[in-house]
Design a protein around this nucleic acid. Structure first.
Lengths: 182, 182
DNA sequence: CTTTATGATACGCAATGCGTAATGCTAAAC
DNA sequence: GTTTAGCATTACGCATTGCGTATCATAAAG
C-alpha cells in the first residue's frame, strides 16, 4: 500500500498546493538549490519560487537548515527518553523540558509515555546527571523515566517528495536513494 | 551543568575544528546564508567557507535541507514505534525497515527496545496496516511492537551552536531563539 | 462593468557562487 | 638552516543568482 498523500487543506492559515510541495521536495534534496533551477524544473518564474519559499519559511512551516548525524559529529551518547507525568502536568512539563540545551526534541504522546524527548550528550555520566539530577530538581512530579540509547541511526530522511507522493508524477525527478544523515 | 563540547577528533576521516563547527552553526540558523556573509562573520575568505561546506556535505557529515513539522504539513498520524527482535536479526531488520517509504527514521537501541523507528501516516488506519500487515509480512521475527503516537511536537531543533557550546564565545552571534519546526 | 485583492511574471542591478591560479603554512627530509 | 612536498587558504574574474519593484492576470466583491 503506497503511503497516502496528505489532503490539501489549510494548515496554519496556509494551504499547501502541489507547487508548494514540489518546492519543498526540491529543497529537501538540496536546500541551496538556486531558485531559478527550481523554477525552470517546475515551469514557473523564479520570483514565484522565491515568494513561496519566503511564505513557507516565514510562516514557520519549513526551515532550511544544516542537518547531520549527531553521533558522527561527536555526540557519543544520544538517547530517547520516555516520561510519565500526571495528566495535569504534561503540557507544562513538555514546554519546560524543551528549554534544556541538551534536549533536541520533545513530543507529547499518550498511552505508556506522556512525553518523549531526545537528549544529546558526550558522556554517559552527563546523560545520567541530566536524568538523575537536572530534570528531577526542576520537574519533581515525573513519575517514571525510561531511557532508550540510540546506538546507531540508519535513516533520518527529509525527502518530502516521498511523503507527498510526488515521485510517481510525470516530469518530476525520481526519488533519490535516501540516506540522509540524521 | 553546561553540556560538554564534543572533543575534536576524527570522524569519518574528517577532523571537525572550531571553524567547521562555526560554519555548521551558521548554516543551522539559515541554510541559505551566503558564503560571503559567513566568511565575513568568521573572518575567513569566502572560498574557505565554500570548500569546507563542500567537504562537510560531500562526506555526508551534514546536509542542507528543508525541514518541517510533519503534523503541520498534513501528516496527522505520526508515531514512534519500538520493536523487539531476536539479537541476530537486529541489524538486518533495521536496514530493511529503513526502506519503507513511510518510515522517516530508524535507530538501533538496546535494553527494552531493539529498534526504534518513526513512521508517517495520514490516517490511523494506515498506521495500523503498517504495523499489523506490512511489517509482519516481511519481518516475521518481530517479537514485540509498542506504539507511541506523537500528538504534538514542541521542539525539534537543529541549532548546532548550542550543542557545540559556541554560544558563549566572543564575537559569535548569540543563539537565536529558534523554534525549529520538526 | 468596475473595483479590489491576491498571486504570477518581467526586468535590471547589486551580490553571490564557482573555477582557477597564486600564495601561505606546516612538517618532514636532507 | 634550507629545501621540498602537501595541503589549506586566499585572490580574482565571470557567469549566475538573489532581490526589489513594477506590471500583468485572475477571480471575487460591489
Amino acid at each position: 500500500m503506497p503511503i497516502a498523500k496528505p489532503e490539501e487543506r489549510d494548515v496554519n492559515g496556509i494551504n499547501l498546493d502541489a507547487l508548494d510541495k514540489r518546492i519543498i521536495a526540491a529543497l529537501s534534496r538540496n536546500g541551496r538549490q538556486p531558485y531559478r533551477e527550481i523554477a525552470r524544473d517546475l515551469k514557473v518564474s523564479e520570483a514565484t519560487v522565491r515568494q513561496r519559499v519566503s511564505r513557507l519559511t516565514d510562516s514557520g512551516l519549513i526551515r532550511i537548515a544544516a542537518v547531520g548525524n549527531f553521533i558522527a559529529l561527536g555526540f557519543d551518547v544520544v538517547a530517547l527518553i520516555h516520561l510519565k507525568v500526571p495528566p495535569a502536568y504534561v503540557d507544562d512539563y513538555a514546554r519546560r523540558i524543551a528549554e534544556y540545551a541538551s534536549v533536541r526534541f520533545v513530543s507529547i504522546s499518550f498511552g505508556s509515555a506522556d512525553i518523549i524527548l531526545q537528549s544529546l550528550h558526550t558522556t554517559m555520566h552527563s546523560l545520567h546527571n541530566f536524568i538523575r539530577n537536572e530534570m528531577p530538581a526542576q520537574l519533581p512530579h515525573i513519575t517514571s523515566v525510561e531511557v532508550f540509547p540510540q546506538v546507531e541511526t540508519l535513516k533520518s530522511s527529509w525527502t518530502w517528495e516521498t511523503w507527498f507522493g510526488l515521485e510517481q508524477e510525470a516530469g518530476f525527478p525520481p526519488a533519490s536513494p535516501i540516506d540522509d544523515p540524521e
